[in-house]
Each structure stands twice: as C-alpha cells, then as structure tokens.
C-alpha cells in the first residue's frame, strides 16, 4: 500500500448550475521518502490539490489516504508550507516556529523546546535573525521561516505549495539548494507544487503534470532518474536533464494548446431542419 494515496478524487466549487469542476478523477500514489513534484499552469487547481492533501478542504468524491487512514481534517502530521508564507506578523521567527513546536510536542520543557526551535531555525540558516519579526525579513527569509515551522513539527509528509514562486531567481536557487540539503538529511516524503519545470527536475524523483483546468486531471508522470546530489550548473549540459525537460515542457505546451483549442471550439451545432413551404400545400 502506498504511503499517500489519492483515489479518483473530485473537487468543484459553486452550487448546482454555477458549478465549476476544478479537479476531476485525480489518482496518485506516493511512496514513503519520495520527492514528488506536481507541475502545472496557474489556475489549474494546484492549490486546491494541496489543500485537499492537507485536509483543509474535503473532496466531493473519492478518497485521500495517508498510511491507510482517510484524511478528513488538517493535522500536524502533514506539514504545509504556504505560497504566501502565512507567518503570524506579531510573533518573532522563534515565536512562529515555537507555536507549532509547543502544539506538537507539548511535553518538552521550556529549554528543550528552545533547543528544538533553534535547531530548525539553524537548518534554514536563519539563526542570526531568530528574534526578528516577519516584516523585518525579506521574502526569501520569510519563506525559510515557513519551511522551518513546517519541519519543526516533524511531519510525516511535507506539502510545499509553490513555496518559491514569489521569490526572485537568485533567492530561489539558494532556497532550492537548501530544500535539497534538508531533504537529503532525513528523506521525508515531500510533495511540492511548482510551475517551474527546471525546479521540479532539480528536486524531484518523479514529476506529475497537472492538465489545465477546469476538470484538471493528472497527465502521464515523468521519472527523474538523475543521480543525487544534483549539481545545478553541471545539469544544464546533462543530456538526460535536457531530455526530461524537453519531454515535460512539450507535454505541458501540448495539453495547454489542446485545452485552449477546446475552449475556442464554441461552434454552435445547428439543428438539422428545413423550412417547410406551406404555400405549396
């Protein structure tokens, strides 16, 4: 049995006649310790997908199972890193991380908790800024706090909802390396949503493309058999890397044109009737 499993999941918003189906017949199996990247265009329902896995919303039909248990509500066993950081602005870096540590490990003493918080803040290289408030930090630093907060809960599975898409390219590269390093250390199961194919190839074991919505569903998956650790500069010349990138990109472009052509195809089929000449009768 897979570690995380999605079985024919459907999700839509709105009532009866105004209803839009966002996700349709989603099936996914994730093994323990795997790093999965879900790639798709914006508006294809990626965030809905991660909210479903986190349990923040429930599917209209189908099942999501974590270790054989159906997911019905959110919980700290699924650490989630939100796209817009979602840090509490009145708490310092330590305070934000501590809030989750305190909740997940209520038995720790004050000193142990502080050590735990410091360990995870150090993991994302933010120890010098541990006492700062979120508004004093840059976007990249805020996202690191968010990652530290999720990691500090020691979740079974880490859900990353476009964690780097709000950052500039350089910061992005730095954080990608950090995420890889952290993942290498404890090989936690990670599901990352992204819109960057290179990022997906660099980080993931497996890439699952999400077709454009509405009625989005998964396309055929791409394995990334590249050796780890992956070197971002050397990879640019790696024929294997190029091959995967071309495959994924051209697949996404194809489904996108297909989806667009579907949308454009609004030719009204006229009923096959002929006017009857009544005067003849």
């Amino acid at each position: 049995m897979a570690f995380l499993e999605m079985k024919s999941v459907n999700k839509g918003y709105g009532s009866a006649n105004l209803r839009t189906e966002v996700l349709n017949d989603i099936n996914l199996q994730v093994e323990e310790g795997e790093f999965i990247a879900i790639v798709g265009f914006s508006g294809s329902g990626k965030s809905t997908l991660i909210s479903l896995m986190a349990g923040l919303i429930t599917p209209d039909s189908g099942q999501i199972m974590l270790k054989g248990q159906e997911i019905t509500d959110p919980g700290p066993d699924r650490g989630i890193v939100f796209q817009n950081y979602s840090l509490l602005p009145w708490l310092s870096v330590a305070g934000n991380v501590d809030l989750s540590v305190k909740q997940v490990f209520p038995k720790l003493s004050r000193a142990e908790r502080r050590k735990h918080v410091e360990k995870y803040v150090d993991m994302v290289n933010l120890l010098p800024a541990i006492g700062k408030k979120p508004h004093e930090l840059s976007g990249g630093m805020r996202q690191r706090v968010s990652i530290a907060r999720a990691l500090a809960m020691q979740p079974e599975i880490l859900l990353l909802d476009e964690p780097l898409s709000a950052l500039d390219a350089l910061t992005r590269a730095v954080l990608q390396d950090e995420i890889t390093n952290i993942w290498e250390k404890d090989r936690r199961t990670v599901i990352m949503i992204t819109n960057d194919v290179d990022e997906a190839i660099l980080l993931a074991d497996r890439i699952v493309p999400l077709k454009p919505g509405p009625n989005a569903t998964f396309g055929p998956e791409f394995k990334v058999p590249l050796e780890r650790p992956r070197d971002r500069t050397a990879m640019n010349d790696d024929p294997e890397f190029k091959k995967i990138r071309n495959a994924v990109t051209s697949y996404l472009m194809d489904v996108n044109t297909e989806a667009k052509s579907l949308n454009v195809n609004t030719n009204i089929v006229l009923p096959d009737i002929q006017p009857v000449d009544l005067s003849a009768a």
Binding site: L56, P76, I80, L88
Partner: peptide
C-alpha cells in the same frame, strides 16, 4: 491563512 495555520496545527 492564519486560520489555516491554526487548523493545520490543530
């Protein structure tokens, strides 16, 4: 988002 944080943390 803050409510979601609270929900995830239970």
């Amino acid at each position: 988002d803050h409510i979601n944080v609270a929900r995830v943390l239970k």
